[in-house]
C-alpha cells in the first residue's frame, strides 16, 4: 500500500516537473518569437468566446449557492446584514476561482488537450516538424497564450457574475435588500480580496494552459491515447489547481499580514 502511494506521489511530482518544464519552454518561445495576432485571436475565439455562456451560467449559480449557504449561517446570529460582504468575499477569494477553474479545465482544457492530441496522433505535428518548422512556435504557443488569457478573462467574468448571482438570489429568495447587499460588500471585500481572486484566476489559467498543452502535445497511441491523455489532463489540472490554491492562499495571507502589520499599509 505504502509502495503504491510512494510510486503515485513520485509519478505525480515527475509529471508536475515535466509540465513545468514544458510550460517554461512555451513561454520562452513566446518571449523570443511572439505569436501571430490573427492566430491568437482565432484561438481565443475558439476556446474563450465559446465558453462565455458556460462561465456566466456557472458563476451565477456559484454566487447564488454561496449566498444561500452563508445566509443559513448568518440567520442564526441575526447577522444577515453582512451577507453581501461575506458571500462576495468568500466567492472572490476562493470558491469562485476554484469552481469556475474546474469548469474551464473541463471545457477549455479538455478541448485543447484533445485538439493537440489528435494533431499528434494523426502526424499533423510531425508534418509541421518535417516542413522545417517548430510545432511549439506554430501550434502550441498560440494555444497556450489563448488559454491563459481566455481562462483569466473568463474567471474574472465568472466572479463578477457570481457576485451578481448572489445579490439576485438574496433579493428574490432570501429577502435581503439588494442595495443593502451591495453596500455591505466594500466593508468586507478589500483590495486584498480582489488581489487574491485576480491572482488565483491568473495562476489557474496558466495551470489549465500548461497541463492541457503538455498532455495534448505528448499524446501517443492513437485514439485511445487521446482519450487517456484528456482524462489524465483533467485529473492533473484539478490536483494542481487545488495545490496551487492552498499555496496561494497561504502566500497571499502571509503577504497581507506582512504588509499590514510590518509595513503598516
Amino acid at each position: 500500500m505504502m509502495a503504491v502511494l510512494r510510486n503515485s506521489a513520485w509519478s505525480t511530482i515527475g509529471e508536475l516537473g515535466k509540465t513545468t518544464m514544458f510550460g517554461c519552454e512555451v513561454v520562452g518561445n513566446l518571449l523570443r518569437y511572439g505569436t501571430p495576432f490573427r492566430g491568437l485571436l482565432l484561438q481565443m475565439y475558439v476556446v474563450g468566446v465559446r465558453s462565455i455562456s458556460t462561465t456566466v451560467f456557472t458563476g451565477f449559480f456559484v454566487g447564488a449557492i454561496m449566498a444561500i449557504q452563508i445566509h443559513l449561517q448568518l440567520r442564526d446570529f441575526g447577522a444577515q446584514a453582512f451577507l453581501g460582504g461575506l458571500s462576495a468575499s468568500v466567492t472572490l477569494r476562493n470558491v469562485g476561482p476554484l469552481l469556475i477553474a474546474f469548469i474551464l479545465s473541463g471545457k477549455v482544457g479538455a478541448y485543447t488537450t484533445a485538439e493537440l492530441g489528435t494533431m499528434q496522433v494523426t502526424d499533423q505535428i510531425s508534418a509541421i516538424r518535417c516542413l522545417g518548422m517548430d510545432p511549439i512556435r506554430y501550434l502550441v504557443a498560440p494555444r497556450f497564450l489563448a488559454v491563459v488569457v481566455s481562462s483569466f478573462l473568463l474567471l474574472v467574468i465568472g466572479l463578477m457574475t457570481a457576485i451578481g448571482g448572489g445579490a439576485l438570489i438574496a433579493a428574490l429568495d432570501l429577502g435581503v435588500n439588494t442595495l443593502n447587499y451591495v453596500q455591505n460588500i466594500p466593508t468586507i471585500v478589500t483590495g486584498w480580496s480582489i488581489l487574491t481572486g485576480v491572482a488565483k484566476s491568473f495562476v489557474f489559467g496558466v495551470i489549465i494552459a500548461a497541463v492541457s498543452c503538455y498532455r495534448g502535445y505528448t499524446t501517443r497511441n492513437g485514439a485511445s491515447g487521446v482519450g487517456e491523455n484528456v482524462k489524465s489532463a483533467s485529473v492533473q489540472t484539478l490536483v494542481t489547481i487545488i495545490i496551487a490554491d492552498f499555496a496561494l492562499s497561504n502566500w497571499i495571507g502571509g503577504l497581507m499580514d506582512f504588509c499590514t502589520e510590518v509595513l503598516g499599509w
Binding site: L42, M119, T122, D123, Q124, S126, A127, I128, C130, L131, G132, M133, Y138
Partner: peptide, 26 residues
C-alpha cells in the same frame, strides 16, 4: 520532404493555406 501515411493536413486551414504553410515559414 516527407509524405505521411495519413495526409496530416492541418484541419483548421484550407487547402491553399496548408500548401502555403511551409512556403511562408521557410
Amino acid at each position: 520532404g516527407m509524405v505521411f501515411q495519413f495526409p496530416a493536413l492541418l484541419d483548421s486551414l484550407n487547402v491553399y493555406e496548408n500548401v502555403a504553410f511551409g512556403v511562408r515559414a521557410l
